[in-house]
Design a protein around this nucleic acid. Structure first.
Lengths: 247, 247
DNA sequence: AATCCTTTGATTGTTCAACAATTCTTCGAT
DNA sequence: ATCGAAGAATTGTTGAACAATCAAAGGATT
């Protein structure tokens, strides 16, 4: 009985909500109007999404082993489909795949904390130093307010979410699809690694003022100051996480 | 007859070269010595590697459609295995997967050039501004010399490769596993998108002196100067690629 | 009691065949 | 030329089977 066997919701057989995406034949008839279509997520995508939820909520713990046949039975899907979902999650570094030995929920290894924060420093600080459109800056402000509302409601999970939205919004200043994807993955990893610290309300509450200061500097166009404040925050946050996780 | 059907080498049935990797049971017996083991690449990995080669060499052109059954027959593997290889390549953005409609070699879309260069600016410039160990700096210098040798030998492909090694080595200054992976993917995308320009010797030869100057500043510890030179290079390179590809 | 070797069981990776679903192409009618 | 229907092609999924690999268990040896 592994933790992979606890608390699974089956994959809904009903029609799931679709997502709009522009589609067209790559390399052909680019001049023709692209037709919008509703893409129904595949079963494998839905399995992956379900597992992502479980990971983000701490129901699947770092290091836990996920077995294809067990999940196949529990979710009522084919083993092959589970494999496809695993591949998705492995590409996002949420699970680690060891050939012939199995799939394990990703866990913090030596240097991982520093690595994640190095990526964040490169990306977030560069993004905020480049500034962004008024719309993008407004989104950063919205995330700060979201954090304040969560703190006022004593909702710790929402506080952690708002903090992630804040940092995602900073990267989004750059309006780069690739950077947004990279940052989303880094944030997903952090949710997985640092879940325990996430529910410590004090952890994020202490950063609300920091986030506000960073945002104010951004709004005022003081981009170097914003970058310095953000860098200081990231360094401090790394120290704290290292202290909590003994890296 | 699509370009996917041209020039495939079968997947070798003989024992392939393995790669060393440390393995252990995640989350368990972390105190025990990790045993080194030779991991035999799976067939899916080998299919993916083969396709990567074809992509990098321009044998599979942007926009070309890759069909599971065709590749399955040509490579002598199961269709399911081809699907697994496709998933790997899609995660690396080398192919684009449209649900129910097929897999296509990735191609340049609107804004892709700017996007790729934005990522590079964030990562490469941050990395060089952080400097690195003597060993890492030596690797940057080695890539510059590699470029000089390629130019002297009038080997255009090698010249392009050396330039990519140069930029990979810059990011490697940060000694971050995640950033190295991200950069490797960006470089793979660039090889795919810009292959035509790659074989234009003049394209990279004009950058040899730039690379040398950047490296000299790095070696002298003038990190801000190195960053400014690199930034100027990236901006100029983006302009040139945009001019060639009409983005 | 500790260590080593062999056997067994569990799991992964792959193949194959089949089917359902979706999309694209072709053909015929207007 | 356009539209609609039919057919073809392809993708996504399933389930069964088998080979290969690894981990666990059990027995033998020191």
């Amino acid at each position: 009985m592994t933790s992979a066997e606890s608390g699974f919701r089956g994959i809904p057989g009903s029609a799931p909500t679709g997502t709009k995406q522009a589609a067209g034949r790559a390399g052909a008839t680019l001049g023709s109007a692209a037709r919008l279509r509703m893409a129904v997520p595949s079963v494998a995508d839905r399995v992956a999404a379900e597992l992502r939820l479980q990971l983000a909520e701490g129901l699947l713990l770092p290091g836990a082993r996920l077995t294809e046949s067990t999940l196949s039975e529990e979710l009522g899907v084919s083993r092959n489909t589970v494999r496809e979902a695993f591949a998705e999650l492995a590409a996002e570094r949420l699970v680690v795949r060891h050939p012939n030995r199995g799939v394990f929920v990703a866990s913090l290894g030596p240097g991982d904390i520093h690595d994640v924060y190095t990526v964040r420093r490169f990306i977030e600080v560069s993004a905020i130093r480049g500034g962004g459109s008024p719309e993008r800056v407004t989104a950063v402000r919205a995330a700060v307010e979201e954090g304040r509302a969560a703190a006022a409601a004593a909702d710790d999970e929402a506080l952690g979410s708002a903090n992630q939205h804040f940092h995602g919004a900073i990267v989004a200043l750059a309006e780069s699809r690739r950077l947004n994807t990279i940052m989303a993955q880094v944030l997903a990893e952090m949710r997985l690694f640092f879940h325990k610290a996430t529910v410590d309300a004090h952890f994020y509450r202490s950063y609300l003022d920091d986030n506000d200061k960073i945002c104010k500097a951004l709004e005022a166009g003081q981009l170097d100051r914003a970058g310095d404040l953000l860098l200081a925050y990231l360094d401090r946050s790394e120290e704290k996480q290292s202290a909590v996780h003994g890296d």
